[in-house]
């Protein structure tokens, strides 16, 4: 218990640094580009348009409001991919700072995930535009969109901490991870409906692919305006807790040895 209090006190001491790091990431991302933050809206929009053209002409899936279906999946998956890739490099990339000043190391990782979250919230603007254009019925349920995003945020923090400490000792992880992300994208129903999968595979995906739980919850509130079933919450919250535990445990265990490897 004492350790928890100590930890919270330490975090509060560095909360301004945390804010500074998040602002730094966001500022530097689009510095010296003409359209700046607008890219956070335009990028998902363009990707969605390409996928829409490809999938509504080449492969036909019978999905209502297909652009919104695509965009909801793609925004959340894009956030996970961006957040994990950025946080994986958060320790090695800040070697200069870590070698010369004492800062709690997890701050770098968590701030990277948080700046990706800000980016995600900016790309919600694209989603609003597409929702209005395609005429998806507007309901109060839509306000629930934060619930899956919060679960996903904690999932990504846990996964990010795990990857960040792993890549310090094992740099090959960054290359392996891009392969895993690609595979993960194809087993997540982003541009196809889960019903095209064989029955057994479906139930496997529903419980073992956390991204499914988050995207399905997100679509339930944005696209269908219905409350999600309990299974989705169990899977979503469960995975977030598992990842947080694994991430924090491995990070705390190894953090004192980082300096020798960066």
């Amino acid at each position: 218990m004492n350790r928890v209090i100590q930890w919270v006190r330490n975090f509060l001491k560095y909360k301004d640094l945390f804010a500074q790091l998040v602002i730094r990431d966001i500022k530097l991302k689009y510095r010296r580009s003409f359209l700046g933050y607008l890219w956070s809206v335009l990028n998902p929009l363009f990707t969605m348009l390409i996928m829409w053209v490809v999938f509504s002409n080449l492969f036909r899936f019978d999905i209502q409001y297909f652009p919104v279906y695509l965009l909801t999946g793609q925004i959340l998956f894009g956030f996970m991919s961006e957040a994990t890739n950025a946080s994986m490099l958060s320790i090695t990339g800040n070697a200069g700072l870590l070698k010369k000043t004492y800062i709690p190391k997890y701050i770098f990782t968590v701030s990277r995930v948080t700046s990706s979250l800000v980016n995600l919230l900016l790309s919600m603007i694209a989603l609003i535009i597409v929702t209005l254009i395609t005429g998806v019925p507007i309901t109060w349920r839509m306000l629930w969109f934060l619930v899956p995003i919060i679960q996903l945020y904690f999932f990504c923090v846990g996964l990010g901490l795990f990857l960040a400490q792993g890549s310090v000792f094992f740099r090959d992880l960054q290359y392996i991870w891009s392969v895993i992300i690609t595979a993960w994208m194809y087993i997540t129903p982003i541009f196809y409906p889960i019903s095209i999968m064989p029955e057994q595979l479906q139930s496997l995906i529903k419980f073992c692919n956390p991204m499914y739980a988050y995207i399905a919850q997100f679509r339930d509130c944005i696209l269908y305006g219905v409350p999600s079933g309990p299974n989705l919450y169990i899977a979503g919250i469960g995975w977030a807790m598992i990842m947080m535990t694994a991430g924090i445990w491995s990070f705390v265990k190894n953090q004192d040895r980082f300096i020798l490897y960066i």
């Binding site: 560095y14 301004d16 640094l17 804010a19 790091l21 730094r24 530097l28």
Partner: peptide
């Protein structure tokens, strides 16, 4: 980052508020 932004970043590292 610019000098001004770095003053705030560095200050935060030393534990000062904004």
């Amino acid at each position: 980052m610019t000098a001004r932004e770095n003053v705030f970043l560095n200050g935060a590292i030393l534990g000062h508020t904004k």
